[in-house]
Design a protein around this nucleic acid. Structure first.
Lengths: 224, 224
DNA sequence: TAGATTGTTAATCGATTAACAATC
DNA sequence: TAGATTGTTAATCGATTAACAATC
């Protein structure tokens, strides 16, 4: 079980966390979302933020936000709110994602180029260190700071660059093959932007992006 | 409250659903995910699927899947599983998303083109009916079946084409302005692919895509 | 028949929320 | 001080799960 202990009384909770206890799935998901909003708020020049403002952006109840945070320390100031910068630091510590993590990107088409030129990953300590395609016509092209590489170089690049995440921006027909090669190379997190349902061993996390799912969900509450 | 009643005893539950009771947030989210997996499984030629297979793809517990579905009827066959096609139909009925829903897409850059040429939305009854950009150099260009339109035509297009969803594939700096104009035009669901935090009135649903959040979350469980 | 998988129960656990004292 | 917002409690509700009879 992943969710043990985290909701125990607070004195124990902090101790358990320090001992290396895992966060529950829900807490980890919510903390990640706070981090995103805080990062953007910081960019917009905001210095403090209240739990109510965080709630407006995340649609997570403000009491729960305060509860989530207070489990790890007293980060806020009554009557004022939370300091954006320091809260970012605290949450990164809790999520242990303060470091730099390297990404390999597959597919140099429209989607791949859009991802490569976005700083949505860079803002959170992820760095796209290499980009691959199968099309000989685009191999060797520059996209931003990257040069499009051929698939043969996958294993070497993953090892040399310490790649932990592979992002698939390839057609559905190619996705499983790339995923298999990433698994063989030792990559542990695969982010799938294709529609393909991927098979992978249990130790590898596959996340499939599904904007249509989010739309269906939003539409239900609009129609109902 | 949105979550009333749905978890009452089954006889009542079905009756309440028929009466127009809303699904809980969790149930609606999960049903949407089943729909995506089923749609892909159908494309791959699969005729039946077990709750365990659905669980492998969605990481949702198989008991919960059976529980979610059995609340609305006996869709499965013991020893066999669920018929993919008919389950898609049943879930669409439950989510009331059997119809066709029109989307306006903003931004004709790499991301906009990638979205326009994907059938990830089309598979679920969403149709991209128009595409906008501010750059005079691209207005008038064809992208797939669409012609890139100028912003002036936003209001007219939303009304004439009955657009219910706006997708923002524009730079962060432009996102709020487009969102405001969509709100004024009466669009009720905004799907934001920029990093910008958007302000919108409460009756409008804003969904911000945040791949970095999903990565942070996956990374936590990999590191911990 | 034998094996597989659903539909359902019952028990537990985490999420959610309102309310409010503490305090900036 | 007065207003605002956190940190915390206590109560409720939904999610999750194991287990298994029913049945294809």
């Amino acid at each position: 079980m992943i969710t043990d202990g985290v909701e125990a009384d607070r004195a124990e909770q902090t101790a358990e966390f320090a001992d290396g206890e895992r966060l529950s799935l829900g807490v980890a998901a919510r903390l990640s979302r706070y981090l995103q909003v805080l990062t953007q708020a910081g960019k917009m020049g905001k210095e403090t933020i209240s739990s109510q403002e965080l709630s407006d952006y995340t649609h997570i109840n403000s009491t729960q936000i305060r509860r989530d945070l207070s489990g790890f320390g007293k980060f806020g100031k009554r009557g004022v709110g939370y300091k954006v910068d320091s809260l970012v630091g605290e949450i990164r510590k809790i999520l242990r994602t303060s470091g730099q993590h390297n990404i390999a990107l597959f597919g140099a088409g429209n989607l791949g180029q859009a991802i490569a030129s976005s700083d949505i990953f860079a803002d959170h300590g992820f760095r796209i260190v290499s980009m691959f395609d199968v099309d000989p016509a685009v191999i060797g092209n520059r996209v931003g700071n990257l040069t499009v590489q051929a698939f043969d170089e996958l294993d070497r690049t993953v090892k040399e660059q310490d790649v932990v995440v592979g992002i698939l921006a390839v057609p559905a027909e190619a996705a499983q093959e790339v995923a298999d090669r990433l698994v063989d190379a030792g990559v542990k997190i695969i982010f799938n932007y294709s529609e393909q349902l991927l098979r992978a061993p249990p130790e590898v996390t596959v996340h499939t992006s599904s904007p249509a799912v989010d739309l269906l969900y939003a539409l239900y509450f609009y129609l109902a």
